[in-house]
């Protein structure tokens, strides 16, 4: 597996699309793997009592999925140094999270990648990943 170099990237360049199918297992599994036992992330009844139709993905799972989306593309030697996220609407079982990415900028061995995740409810997450790439 090779890793992209910063000087191989072009501003605006798109990452391959990922349509991520969200299931109850994914939401609950992600929550427990991140040790987030808040009931709304694994218990549908608890989510309904808060006015949502179903349990919803926790932030750490969203970040984990976006992170692997970026490094699957960039390669194993890409180092994530920073993640900024803007949080939007919920992502729930049955939702297809449409993950899209593009290169925002490069500077030396550093690159900024914007990742958006949208579903039928609208924007779920917009994240900016800072990467350090091989020279």
């Amino acid at each position: 597996m090779t890793t992209l170099k910063a000087n191989e990237l072009e501003t605006g360049q798109a990452l391959p699309d990922l349509d991520f199918k969200t299931t109850t297992t994914v939401v609950a599994g992600g929550a427990i793997a991140s040790r987030d036992y808040t009931p709304v992330h694994h218990d549908k009844a608890a989510a309904i009592s808060q006015g949502l139709p179903d349990m919803f993905m926790n932030i750490l799972t969203t970040q984990g999925i976006c992170s692997r989306y970026v490094t699957d593309w960039a390669g194993p030697d890409a180092i994530v140094t920073r993640v900024k996220t803007k949080l939007g609407g919920p992502n729930m079982p049955g939702d297809t999270l449409k993950i899209r990415g593009k290169v925002l900028s490069t500077d030396g061995d550093a690159a900024e990648i914007e990742v958006t995740g949208n579903n039928a409810w609208g924007n779920h997450v917009t994240a900016t990943f800072s990467l350090r790439l091989p020279a």
Partner: peptide, 10 residues
């Protein structure tokens, strides 16, 4: 466990 849930294969 994390990698399983996130679909991570790094």
């Amino acid at each position: 466990q994390w990698c399983d849930a996130m679909g991570e294969s790094h």
